[in-house]
Nucleic acid binder design. Structure first.
Lengths: 340, 340
DNA sequence: TGTTCACATGTGCACGGTCACAAACGTGAA
DNA sequence: TTCACGTTTGTGACCGTGCACATGTGAACA
């Protein structure tokens, strides 16, 4: 497989220096774009680097500078569309800024698992942490382990806003709710995400706020787990009652499960029940019926997230754009006025 | 936000050594589980580490050992379910083995983008690379840049089997095809993935093999791009012709798009057309109708992938389990005997 | 009592960069 | 000529860990 090479040492700045006839420090200056280097010298050094296929050694750099240039992501459910998209965007933005990214997944969200994941990140001397997970618990553990690196979460928490990105989940949820109310629905259920996920909480709050503002009476939201399976089982129970005409699901997957259950119950969508989702995953347009949902720009989210994090790092530029990202309502065919 | 701490240097092994009354080397031995250390000494050192909240410095370690303990993932479409699941599994398995993982995403799959991503990984001195992307091109670039670290791809290629994991995509595709043939279908289309994705090619080969083995005439597969949108547009065109009774789609998302197009065309599934997918994403059971598909164990795939990669790394154990992972046909409601 | 040997521990340097400081050089003004 | 000053370059130490090698210690054995 890999050939048994003579295992030559990779070239170092001293090798470059020798061949270019300068000191290793001059090579280092070229690497770091130091201003006072004669053009001819710089060119010569660069040429030798090219010839030698020189690559700076990141470990040595990190050791000597005391900075790893790495940020960590702490993520749960990282294979779902939303988190996965954000992670991809974060990685791209970080790479652009010259940072490396390391992801630690939570298999379960208990204390122990969170601690292990945070440890994994801290052992790599990450300079900052992005949290895409049930933040409440994670923040507790962060505090408990007295972890001092800056961290950022992808959602607005209210009391930790310095650390959070203002993606207006509440506004998105209000859009969805308002859409149902405008269509004439008055008995609307909300299928929420897990209680300790901050975006779940924000969407729930948006739902309740809008219902309150429009003077529509509400029932207690149902707490789900983001999966289509849960949506299906919740739906089976709900559609037995039929004391409502619309459901706002806090993500698209659960909405899909709900639609499945509705068909099982012989209910037409949107004829008998209207359903709104959240996220606008790429598949949502192809559900049956195509799902009315709220689109989030996960890419923009990831980019801003890195911008915010870097602004807290030494040498970081103060963040300019703190305007909330506004989600957009995408009206498709899963919503209609109530039948009566 | 972050308090302006007096910026104390983190404790090093020498600090630990001084307080424990031993040499720094003894501390290093404790860290690396060297066999000949007196129990009492070890305990004392560990206690001091605990007191000082000592954390080994990874950069120093990497520098001194000349090994980064990091592996890189080169991924395209990392927000889709399949890749995202594998990435998560790879990260978990790597962490378990004491490795760190760094992911580089490809935004586009052109030469330039691949080079940039590989550079990013090489600059971190990754010890191995996992490829989840159009492997053909990536392998070309790997060779071209004379990158010598071991690499592994998630799919079987035939001619690069040393580097690949034998997940039996071909067998999976044959299962799906055979299922349709057994139901009585004779005119079956295949909606394949992008030509340069090796799993797309393998699934296509499986389809053609099985059709050939059963003596069923075939038409040329349609090359898609994995998205539901593509499935929808392909479906709109296909269902105009109706010279077939079943379609085998090489992933679930495209199958979803096909089902959408079928409804638009007024065709019943499985009454008029049978559809089989591939992957068994968590949503597939809730499609309308629930999708017959081929289940892959992405988690197992990720774990084996790391095992294979580590076996090629210095000090790695030879890989034991090279049996192919067998996918499983999950029969749901999108398939039935042809109408006539 | 001396020799051998395994175990336990210490010493000094290497890894590949960066940093602080010093030195060499050219240039213009006193 | 001498001095001050900015630009360009060099010198040596240092970051935290692991490695090779040396040393000390005690038990077993002749």
């Amino acid at each position: 497989m890999t050939e048994n090479l003579p295992k030559v040492r990779a070239p170092s700045i001293r090798d470059v220096a020798r061949l270019a006839g300068v000191s290793h420090q001059t090579v280092s200056r070229v690497l770091n774009n130091h201003p006072s280097i004669r053009e001819t010298t710089k060119a010569r050094v660069l040429q030798v680097m090219e010839d030698l296929q020189y690559r700076p050694n990141r470990a040595a750099r990190a050791l000597s500078r005391g900075r790893s240039r790495t940020i960590g992501i702490l993520s749960a459910q990282s294979s779902e569309y939303g988190p996965a998209s954000s992670i991809a965007a974060i990685q791209d933005a970080a790479r652009e800024a010259g940072y490396y990214v390391n992801t630690a997944n939570l298999t379960t969200v208990d204390q122990e698992s969170i601690e292990a994941a945070l440890m994994h990140l801290m052992l790599q001397a990450v300079e900052g942490i992005v949290v895409i997970a049930p933040q409440v618990r994670v923040f507790d553990v962060l505090e408990q382990l007295s972890i001092t690196v800056p961290f950022v979460s992808l959602q607005s928490t209210g009391h930790l806003d310095d650390h959070a990105l203002s993606v207006d989940q509440i506004a998105g949820a209000r859009l969805a709710t308002r859409h149902l109310i405008d269509l004439g629905h008055r008995r609307i259920y909300h299928l929420a995400g897990p209680q300790d996920w901050i975006e779940a909480e924000a969407r729930m709050r948006g739902f309740l706020d809008e219902m309150g503002a429009m003077d529509v009476p509400t029932t207690a939201p149902i707490l789900g787990d983001w999966t289509a399976d849960f949506g299906y089982h919740a739906g089976r129970e709900l559609f037995g009652r039929r004391d409502f005409t619309a459901i706002f699901s806090s993500n698209d997957q659960m909405a899909l499960g709900l639609m499945h259950a509705a068909r099982d119950a012989g209910l037409g969508i949107p004829r008998d029940i209207s359903i709104v989702g959240f996220d606008d995953i790429p598949e949502a347009a192809h559900f049956w019926p195509p799902l009315t949902t709220v689109r989030q720009d996960f890419g923009e989210l990831g980019r801003r997230c890195i911008a915010l994090l870097l602004s807290n790092l030494p040498g970081g530029e103060p963040i300019v754009d703190r305007d909330p990202i506004m989600p957009r309502l995408i009206v498709r065919e899963s919503t209609a006025p109530p039948a009566f």
